[in-house]
């Protein structure tokens, strides 16, 4: 279990997280939804130890995060940032291999190489391996980083559950790759028992792939439950100020959000209009 308990976080006088508790369960995908500036990325940064909470504790497999060395926690959890800036021309494969840095010297070179190969194959970037990272498209770069973070938690470390934190992993991707990435993440979670926490903007994507959905607004968790309990017409109105209905997806059986009104950016799905006020 990767668990935040009663987290408060303040920055320049503003309370960004107010008594937030959230559990990430091994083998499950937890989606974190909320309007822009609600505190999603901040909460993720508390999980990833980038920000120290003013009060409250994050527990990683039962131990407070502060009890781990940086290296020890890096072997148990990987973080995919929203944007990566790399202006040096590494080959794509070199970037993926960097995911193995916390594990230096633990496995044989053959094992290390296999992990990198498998991760690249899973994310379908094997054909890009020798290309300069700087010459890849935004979507390709994002997939290279996904392979990198998968590598980081690929191998078992003393039978402890491992975790993956994703900050808007699909924002730079086209429709096919959005689903491809979410599928990989989901399968990776169930097959390897990885706990995933993903910040998402697309309610339907979250409904399709998440086991648990948490909604955050103004630094507070407003709801946290299985998709059908969270994705409701009422919640969408209350949190996102969008008039929408929720049906059952006839093909997948998950909730399906359908807009009731047209606006410039919202058609059938609420992909990008979440944070917009009308």
């Amino acid at each position: 279990m990767f668990e935040a308990k009663q987290i408060c976080f303040k920055a320049s006088g503003l309370t960004l997280l107010d008594d937030v508790s959230l559990q990430v369960t091994p083998g499950q995908v937890t989606a974190l939804l909320g309007p822009n500036g609600a505190g999603k990325s901040t909460l993720l940064s508390v999980f990833s130890q980038e920000n120290m909470p003013a009060s409250g504790t994050v527990y990683l497999n039962g131990q407070p995060l502060s009890a781990y060395s940086r290296l020890a926690s890096a072997r148990l959890r990987a973080v995919l940032p929203q944007k990566s800036s790399l202006s040096f021309g590494f080959r794509a494969q070199e970037v993926v291999e960097m995911g193995r840095l916390p594990h230096q010297g633990l496995l044989s070179p053959t094992q290390e190489r296999d992990i990198v190969e498998d991760a690249m194959a899973l994310v379908q970037i094997t054909h890009l391996r020798d290309r300069a990272y700087t010459r890849l498209s935004g979507g390709e770069q994002q997939r290279v980083h996904l392979a990198r973070v998968l590598c980081q938690i690929w191998s078992d470390v003393g039978e402890q559950p491992r975790y993956l934190l994703l900050d808007e992993p699909t924002s730079a991707l086209d429709l096919e790759h959005q689903h491809h990435v979410m599928n990989i993440v989901r399968e990776f979670a169930t097959s390897a028992g990885i706990g995933v926490l993903a910040v998402l903007h697309d309610l339907n994507l979250a409904a399709m792939y998440a086991d648990q959905i948490a909604v955050i607004k103004a630094g507070k968790i407003e709801a946290c439950d299985e998709p059908f309990a969270v994705i409701t017409s009422d919640m969408i109105q209350r949190i996102f100020h969008v008039d929408a209905g929720v049906k059952e997806n006839p093909y997948l059986g998950c909730p399906l959000v359908i807009s009731k009104q047209r606006s410039d950016s919202v058609f059938n799905t609420l992909q990008t209009g979440c944070g917009h006020e009308k």
Binding site: S48, Q49, E50, S69, R70, L71, A72, S73, A74, R75, A78, V79, P81, S84, S85, L86, F88, F90, V95, M98, G99, L101, P102, Q152
Partner: peptide, 12 residues
């Protein structure tokens, strides 16, 4: 080179 936060996520 991947970014300071990425370096810290990688355990440095």
């Amino acid at each position: 080179l991947l970014g300071e936060s990425v370096a810290s996520h990688l355990g440095f």
